[in-house]
Design a protein around this nucleic acid. Structure first.
Lengths: 116, 116
DNA sequence: CTGAGATACCTTGACAGGTGAGGTATATCG
DNA sequence: CGATATACCTCACCTGTCAAGGTATCTCAG
């Protein structure tokens, strides 16, 4: 993976909530969709994903139910709750804030001909 | 402070290196300058700062020496090394990358009239 | 029928970085 | 003399990520 785990720390929950905004989904699918959206440059590790589900459910930001697909592996679907939507909005705001803050700290410097 | 520690995780070293690019400095001063640059909205905790110094020095990205100011508390000055400069550039690149990646994951959605 | 691979879930233990709380020492000012 | 600012440092704890391991079902090739 091309992205340091320390850099994504704290954004995992936001990513998951973002996906659930579009409708109920389950772990494997969320992960696949993230992989695809980023052109295979990033994926959540399974352990990270499922820990996040536990955390989010405990906080009341999502709720879960077992799908009943008589065939294939069983799936646990997740729904974003109303508090979850609020938490998502707040976290995006915080993320925008953090980005601006960090950028202001690392890029106020002499710009001596950068490439790219 | 208004910024979650999980969100800045992994950017601490980059912030410090950014400051040392402008010249040698010491802990207390770096921290003060970060506080000022962000309008008091953010500061590194001392423990975080000094742990980072140890880490960076161990990795060879900075080197240190005691200032000789006959008066006042002693100061340990830090200098960014050549590998440190490279590491800084790499980390900024990674940060830009991470930002874009995360944004692409959380903001590909229906945009129903955002404020701001 | 058997084995491989994809789908789909889960848990455990280790690890690393941030942080609260605590400590030291010096200079200045009232 | 005590408070405040400067300036350094360390320890124990918490939390999120992740490698490694495990389970179960379905499909498809041989």
């Amino acid at each position: 993976m091309s992205i340091a785990s320390d850099l994504i720390r704290g954004t995992t929950d936001m990513m998951i909530l973002a996906h659930l905004l579009e409708g109920d989904s389950y772990g494997y699918d969320i992960n696949k969709s993230i992989r695809m959206r980023t052109g295979d440059r990033f994926e959540l590790k399974e352990a990270t994903l499922y820990t996040a589900f536990r955390r989010l459910e405990q906080q009341g930001y999502i709720s879960s139910y077992w799908g009943d697909e008589g065939s294939g592996a069983r799936r646990r679907y997740y729904t974003i709750t109303s508090p979850g939507r609020k938490a998502y909005i707040a976290s995006v705001r915080e993320w925008e804030n953090a980005k601006a803050l960090i950028d202001s700290i690392i890029q106020p410097h002499s710009n001596d001909s950068k490439d790219e």
